[in-house]
């Protein structure tokens, strides 16, 4: 026996794939989410939001039919007082839905005393964590896709004009970006569900981060920019530098990144997300829309940023979870 032990310890790597059992976890998580009362509430909320904002937008658009090449996209971006536009609502709702789905995903397993039993099955922790993330992400994707199809249907019926292929492509990209935006908040809430043993604490922590980026970060970014780049002599370069710093700071927030990205996608006439000096506009045809590829180029850094933030948060949660003692 002693010899056997000595031989085997020479082999240091773990056996098998870390993703053994991944799809079993994904299927279980999706089934849980889709049948839960929590999800019903969220679905009702989002359907009401979509119906309300789209109805408002349609009232508004009808008066301008025939004047705009991108009528369909206006469905998403047109606001009718007192309601904000659909995209505005999504910036608010997506994080909430994502947080609501996973704030108790790991600590809930602890408190139900199921975690050690599940990890005693032939799977690695990797599969459990990624499975939970993907399960929630696919649930988000499913719900958002349903809403998106609903809006497209309503648009066809209400406007009576079919969308052009570019409109379909742009609004589909909007759907994809929205799902990825949800991914960030999933990763965040999941990390908190690993750190905090109490689901309520994890939910509060996630909501605090959400509120911070929603409300306070823009204010803080303004103050920071004024302190770091004060305007001493009143040169226009100073104003420009300060504004650029402020913009850079606000872009640390996923909410800003998302808002800018979908703005560029849904409003093809937007040519830049930063500052443009009059000299840079020389020769530009104002008001003419950008082709899709150019709009994509414009938001490419935003998409990369969103994805990177998701990966970083997931990696943090992953590391914490791997090191966590599973005894309750």
């Amino acid at each position: 026996m002693a010899i056997e032990i000595a031989q085997a310890t020479g082999k240091r790597e773990r056996e098998g794939s870390p993703w053994t059992g991944l799809w079993a976890v994904v299927a279980k998580e999706m089934a849980d989410h889709l049948t839960s009362a929590r999800m019903r509430v969220l679905e009702i909320l989002i359907v009401l939001t979509a119906a309300g904002t789209i109805y408002g937008a349609m009232q508004n658009i009808r008066s301008t039919i025939g004047q705009d090449r991108f009528l369909f996209l206006k469905l998403f971006t047109t606001a009718q007082e007192p309601l904000p536009a659909f995209v505005g609502f999504m910036g608010l709702l997506v994080p909430l839905i994502a947080i609501a789905l996973v704030f108790d995903t790991i600590n809930g397993e602890f408190s139900r005393r199921t975690l050690s039993r599940i990890l005693a099955q032939p799977i690695y922790r990797d599969a459990l964590l990624l499975g939970k993330f993907l399960g929630a992400l696919f649930t988000l994707a499913l719900v958002f896709t349903a809403i998106w199809l609903l809006i497209m249907g309503l648009g066809l019926w209400g406007l009576g004009v079919p969308p052009s292929s570019e409109e379909v492509a742009r609004s589909f990209l909007f759907l994809l970006v929205t799902i990825f935006y949800g991914g960030i908040w999933l990763a965040l809430a999941m990390t908190f569900s690993i750190i905090f043993r109490q689901p309520a604490t994890a939910a509060l922590a996630s909501l605090a981060v959400w509120l911070f980026f929603m409300v306070f970060w823009d204010i803080i970014a303004g103050v920071l920019a004024q302190t770091l780049m004060p305007i001493r002599f009143g040169f226009s370069e100073e104003y420009l530098k300060q504004a650029q710093l402020e913009l850079g700071l606000t872009r640390l927030s996923p909410t800003t990144l998302y808002a800018e990205a979908i703005l560029a996608l849904l409003q093809p006439s937007i040519r830049s997300l930063g500052f443009i000096l009059p000299t840079q506009l020389q020769g530009a045809i104002l008001g003419s829309p950008l082709p899709l590829s150019q709009s994509l180029l414009l938001i490419w850094p935003h998409l990369t940023g969103l994805l990177a933030a998701t990966l970083l948060l997931f990696a943090l949660g992953y590391t914490l979870f791997q090191r966590q003692e599973i005894r309750a």
Binding site: M1, E4, I5, A8, T9, K11, R12, E13, R14, E15, G16, T20, D32, R112, R113, T114, S116, R117, A120, Q121, P122, I123, Y124, A328
Partner: peptide, 29 residues
């Protein structure tokens, strides 16, 4: 060594042959 295997290097084989019931075992209610 559990069943001749090293649980920290071959956990999948160990866990597919060994049943475990934690104290106050929990299920999804």
């Amino acid at each position: 060594r559990v069943l001749g295997l090293d649980p920290s290097r071959q956990p999948l084989s160990v866990k597919s042959h060994v049943g475990y019931m934690p104290d106050l075992v929990g299920f999804y209610d």
